[in-house]
Amino acid sequence: MNETKTTMTGYREVPFLQIRRTLQSERAYESHAHPTLSIGFMMEGKTCFQTPHGSFLLEQGALAIIPPHTQHSCNPIKESKRSYVMVYLDAEFCARIQARHFKEASTLLPLTSPLIFHKALFEEFTRIIKALIEGYSPLHVKALEALLETFFWLYTKRCVIQETEKTLHDVVRFLESRIDEPLSLNDLAKRFGLNPFVLTRHFKQAYGCTPKHYSLDVRIDHAKKLLQGGTPLALCAQYCGFVDQSHFHHFFKRHTALTPKEYQVNFIQ
């Protein structure tokens, strides 16, 4: 029986890009979010792709599109394995590409669909990513940037974008800056002069999750960066506001389907 194998690949020359490849996996994990624009595709098998827009069956031939800070999960069909690739693209980098076509793109504009069926785009995207997994090449990176220009031109939603309510924006900035010591919902609401239930309701409408879940996503993402840099697990737990290493291990695996050690060992740079 084949065992699950996951590798994370990052490039010093290309800080806006990371690639995760998982082979022969039956692992499942909880709904979570990333600060990046994530694009995934199946190499083998099928998976259940769940987003705030609904549940979809993801197979070879389609690209799964996950905007930044959007709750999602991609879990296996019962008693089956799947192999897949996830590509993580820095949101500010993507917004700069969008801005070449859409003047209002000071931040990443919304995209039209969580699933894209475009044969030529799919084949070119998967070809470039598979080549990058095999080894870094500036030519492949240029090809990816050119493809993303086409992608954003075709699939950016043409609409008027309203700014996030200032108070919620301030709450998000606070959560992202207090990774080491997250506040309770009551303390957070008190700090911003809101009723806890009102804060939760408006936050979920804007971000698709509770402030607590958002904070956990941010802390897990920061832990990934620390692990990539070789930070010991115990210090990662401490820096990211977890009670202890066991607590860190539990939540990290629930979010990524990997233990912190597995993630650190399998990160390639």
Score class of each variant (00 low, 15 high):
Arg21Gln: 13
Arg21Phe: 07
Thr22Asn: 08
Leu23Arg: 15
Leu23Gly: 04
Gln24Glu: 11
Gln24Arg: 12
Gln24Ile: 05
Glu26Tyr: 05
Glu26Gln: 14
Glu26Asn: 08
Arg27Ser: 09
Ala28Met: 01
Tyr29Val: 06
Tyr29Cys: 07
Glu30Ala: 05
Glu30His: 09
Ser31Val: 02
His32Gly: 02
Ala33Lys: 00
His34Asp: 00
Thr36Gln: 04
Thr36Pro: 00
Leu37Asn: 00
Leu37Ala: 03
Ser38Val: 09
Ser38Cys: 10
Ser38Ala: 11
Gly40Phe: 13
Phe41His: 05
Met42Ser: 05
Met42Ala: 00
Met42Gly: 01
Met43Asp: 12
Met43Cys: 14
Met43Gly: 14
Lys46Glu: 05
Lys46Gly: 05
Thr47Glu: 04
Thr47Tyr: 06
Phe49Lys: 01
Thr51Ala: 14
His53Val: 12
Gly54Val: 09
Gly54Thr: 01
Gly54Ala: 10
Ser55Arg: 08
Phe56Gln: 13
Phe56Glu: 12
Phe56Val: 01
Leu57Ile: 10
Leu58Gly: 03
Leu58Asp: 07
Glu59Met: 01
Glu59Ala: 00
Glu59Lys: 01
Glu59Tyr: 03
Gly61Pro: 13
Gly61Leu: 14
Gly61Gln: 14
Ala62Tyr: 04
Leu63His: 04
Leu63Ala: 01
Leu63Glu: 08
Leu63Trp: 05
Ala64Ser: 11
Ala64Tyr: 08
Ala64Thr: 02
Ile65Trp: 04
Ile66Trp: 03
Pro68Glu: 00
His69Val: 07
Thr70Tyr: 07
Thr70Asn: 06
Thr70Ala: 05
Gln71Val: 01
Gln71Tyr: 15
His72Gln: 06
His72Thr: 06
His72Tyr: 03
His72Met: 06
Ser73Arg: 09
Ser73Asn: 12
Cys74Met: 15
Cys74Glu: 13
Asn75Trp: 03
Asn75Val: 08
Asn75Glu: 05
Pro76Phe: 07
Pro76Arg: 05
Pro76Lys: 01
Ile77Thr: 13
Glu79Cys: 15
Glu79Leu: 14
Glu79Gly: 10
Glu79Lys: 13
Glu79Gln: 14
Glu79Val: 10
Ser80Trp: 11
Ser80Asp: 06
Ser80Met: 07
Ser80Thr: 13
Lys81Asp: 09
Lys81Tyr: 09
Lys81Pro: 00
Arg82Asn: 14
Arg82Val: 13
Arg82Ser: 12
Arg82Ile: 09
Ser83Trp: 11
Tyr84Cys: 04
Val85Pro: 07
Val85Gln: 10
Met86Ser: 11
Met86Asp: 11
Met86Val: 13
Met86Pro: 10
Met86Ala: 13
Tyr88His: 05
Tyr88Thr: 00
Leu89His: 02
Asp90Gln: 15
Asp90Ala: 09
Ala91Asn: 07
Ala91Phe: 01
Ala91Val: 14
Glu92Met: 11
Glu92Trp: 07
Glu92Gly: 08
Glu92Asp: 13
